[in-house]
Amino acid sequence: MTTADPTVEDSEDEPTLKLEVETAELSAVPLRVEDLEKRFGGITAVDGASFEVERGTITGLIGPNGAGKSTTFNCITGFHRPDAGSVYFDDEDVTGRAPHELARAGLVRTFQIARELGEMTVMENMMLAPKNQSGETLWRSVLPGTRDGVRDQETVNLERTWRTLEFFELDHLWNEQAGNLSGGQRKLLEMARVLMTDPKVVLLDEPLAGVNPSLEARLLEHLHELADRGYTFLLVEHDMDVIMEHCEHVIVMHQGKVLAEGEPAAIRDNEEVIDAYLGEDV
């Protein structure tokens, strides 16, 4: 699997070592949410939710439809400004920061309904993601003297893109417009793209919907590998088997509140949780 590892930035540079230095600086609780509240008109989508996500874990976030999971994601990543409460990333209060600032700091998310960049190719979608692209500065891209440097960086990113695409089994679609992909393929593209940003904490909103079982298993395995290296995942998933099998910790939301949290086994037997799901007819 190492040959297809998409997150190794440059195989000659002993990336694992570099990564450990980076993660050592991280707090043990890279993501913390306190009393988060978000209302839409009369609806209170998130109603005082508080929880922590520990470093190096895959934490599950579950709850019936409309529980407020996606809205929580939106508040954490800056897409919505919460009406009350705080979000801490690496022990720093980042409530209300713009999405791009958070993403640059390493807090990224995927969207529940995949948002591919339809009229860009799969390759372009992927190449967009890497951080610190010198060619994103206009003059560097244009001036003859600096463009060579941009090109070199593009070549490096391209190689990484290609390996990631291979891993996600999207390589045969490399030149396809993302808008022509199937639902499952879009979800994969979105996840692959977000991993290209070298994130620290990744919020995944139902990333496995429409993905075939064998690939799903491999992706989860990959997430575990990344988690072991210090990446942190918060995973919204409706498939309980996935949650039970792959999450160290599970948070249950219901009507905007955190109803319960704990180890998967404990959650499974929690009466309140069962009631919440039954009450919602799921």
């Binding site: 993403a103 990224v108 010198s134 994103e136 891209s141 977000v194």
Partner: peptide, 26 residues
């Protein structure tokens, strides 16, 4: 040259979906 560059790529991404570009740190 502007278009065929990482800069142009971000512009295209903004055209397609500004939120996505933002979510990727642009």
């Amino acid at each position: 040259r502007t278009g065929e560059s990482p800069f142009g790529r971000v512009l295209k991404a903004i055209r397609e979906d500004e939120d996505v570009a933002g979510a990727l740190g642009k």
